[in-house]
Nucleic acid binder design. Structure first.
Length: 488
DNA sequence: ATGTTC
């Protein structure tokens, strides 16, 4: 039996519009499906990975790729793979190193332009209070072992209860209520715990950011109203994950699963890439990874929640406004690196599935009881960050996403240039100055991250979300333009 | 993404 391998061209045929199929071949259990503006490049290694993922034991329907697909560890970023929750395989590479990396948007009642004179002071205060960079720590006092257990079990709610919040109902406005069931703090190693204990409330590095944005355009009046968005509004956007704790959980799981892969049976032994290391969902190793991954996801939610509290406090104190005048509340919080147990309609019946979303955002449609009540007529908010020099988008999930993508959408702009190539092109330039000239204040620890993260290193996220909107997978609701960016 | 090769 042949298998899809790196370096080969994958076969592609157009299904309709921007939707393309990689027909089943070799050991693929299901076809691949790729959302792409125009024909995908057949030698794109990310497409080979889409075909590789289609070999996963228990995979259902398709191996999916969103329009921001990009080569990653084993699985592509921008990929979705749903497996049978009883007989399928769980794979750490299908989640990624940054477990529950995700995005949240906090809305306010303030007009963004009106606070321009205070913008620098505000950004500087946030930059002071939210530690940034690779090894960032000490946003709040180091967690005791007992506190860390609580964070790992309770997620966002832990931080809300300790006063880190926009409003009292923040956790209800997170996907899954800001907490994954099944999380077991005891499944998180001592080393992962050590790394996490001083990192709650820290931003991290790379594409992570905390932004002050202005609602620049409304695409859908009714949905924007349901989401509490209006033109000119100041909002806070946070993109971060589970920091060193999640990295350690992923790293240890891969180290445990990779050497055992063949022992799980012929389907596992035949996987075309060792980076697809996985285990049966019900195996001891699979269950342990799931329990640790769920705990790391809860850490990430608590992390974004603490940063929310720090940012809201900075707004209140720097602007000298009351809680009521600020009117901060969480619009929504999505994870885009996670595997989740969900019920989906498969072949005419409801089935329990484990959906791996790696660089992909849940996008549940209207009427779904898993969408918070205020948004249920519209569909869940789908938060898609762009690059720091252009814009980000708020979309809404759709019924079509439920049918065609296990309720999933894209997650961001997707890299255009490697980090190295971006740095070469940034040499001799001041990216901060270039952004300042365009009215965007950026505060970052060093020049390196700014070079790696400059606009031209990324695809235009407007083109990515246009594919999702055109295919009916998510609907455009609003565009957010950055005013001030805090980076690692 | 990541105490960026414990």
């Amino acid at each position: 039996m042949t298998t899809a391998r790196q370096g080969e061209h994958v076969p592609l045929r157009r299904i309709e519009g921007d939707l393309w199929e990689i027909p089943r071949h070799g050991g693929m259990k299901v076809p691949g499906r790729v959302y792409s503006p125009g024909p995908p490049a057949p030698d794109d290694p990310a497409l080979q990975q889409v075909a590789n993922v289609a070999h996963l034991p228990g995979i259902l329907r398709w191996s999916l790729a969103m329009p921001d697909v990009h080569w990653g560890y084993g699985f592509p970023l921008g990929g979705v793979a749903a497996v049978d929750a009883e007989h399928g395989a769980v794979s750490p590479g299908g989640v990624g190193y940054d477990i529950n990396c995700g995005v949240r948007v906090v809305t306010t009642r303030l007009d963004a332009e009106a606070l321009r004179p205070r913008l620098h002071a505000l950004a500087a205060r946030i930059y002071r209070d939210v530690p940034t960079g690779v090894g960032a720590s000490a946003a709040i006092p180091r967690l005791t072992s007992r506190e860390l257990d609580e964070v790992l079990a309770e997620g966002a709610r832990w931080a809300v209860a300790r006063g880190f919040r926009a409003a009292a109902d923040d956790a209800d406005r997170c996907e899954e209520g800001g907490r994954l069931a099944g999380a077991d703090p005891a499944a998180v190693s001592a080393r992962a715990r050590e790394r996490g204990s001083d990192q709650l409330g820290t931003l991290g590095s790379g594409n992570h950011f905390l932004e002050l944005d202005r609602v620049a355009r409304i695409h859908d009046d009714a949905a924007a109203e349901a989401f509490g968005l209006f033109p000119g509004q100041l909002v806070v956007q946070i993109h971060s994950g589970s920091r060193g704790l999640g990295y350690q959980v992923c790293d240890e799981a891969l180290a445990e699963l990779a050497p055992r892969l063949a022992s799980y049976g012929p389907d596992y032994a035949a996987l075309p890439d060792r980076q697809l290391a996985c285990a049966p969902v019900g195996s001891p190793e699979g269950r342990r990874y799931l329990a640790a991954m769920q705990a790391a996801a809860n850490f990430a939610w608590a992390n974004r929640q603490v940063m929310t509290g720090l940012a809201v406090r900075a707004l209140l104190e720097t602007l000298g406004v009351s809680d009521r005048e600020l009117g901060a509340r969480l619009l929504y919080d999505v994870c885009h690196n996670v595997a989740k147990l969900e019920d989906h309609l498969v072949d005419g019946g409801v089935r329990r599935v484990l959906v791996h979303r790696k660089g992909a955002t849940r996008a549940f449609g209207p009427g779904d009881p898993r969408v918070p009540a205020p948004y249920r007529d519209v569909g869940q908010p789908v938060l898609i960050p762009g690059d720091m020099g252009r814009y980000s988008y708020v979309l809404a999930g759709t019924e079509k996403a439920m049918r065609d993508t296990f309720g999933s959408s894209c997650h961001g702009a997707g890299r255009l240039l490697s980090r190295g190539e971006a740095l070469r092109r940034a040499r001799g330039r001041s990216i901060a100055r270039e952004l300042a000239d365009r009215g965007i204040e950026v505060l970052a620890r060093g020049r390196k991250t700014l070079g790696e993260e400059m606009s031209e290193a990324y695809k235009d996220v407007a083109q990515v979300v246009a594919v999702m909107d055109g295919a009916g997978i998510s609907r455009l609701v609003a565009r957010l333009d950055p005013l001030a960016v805090v980076k690692g």
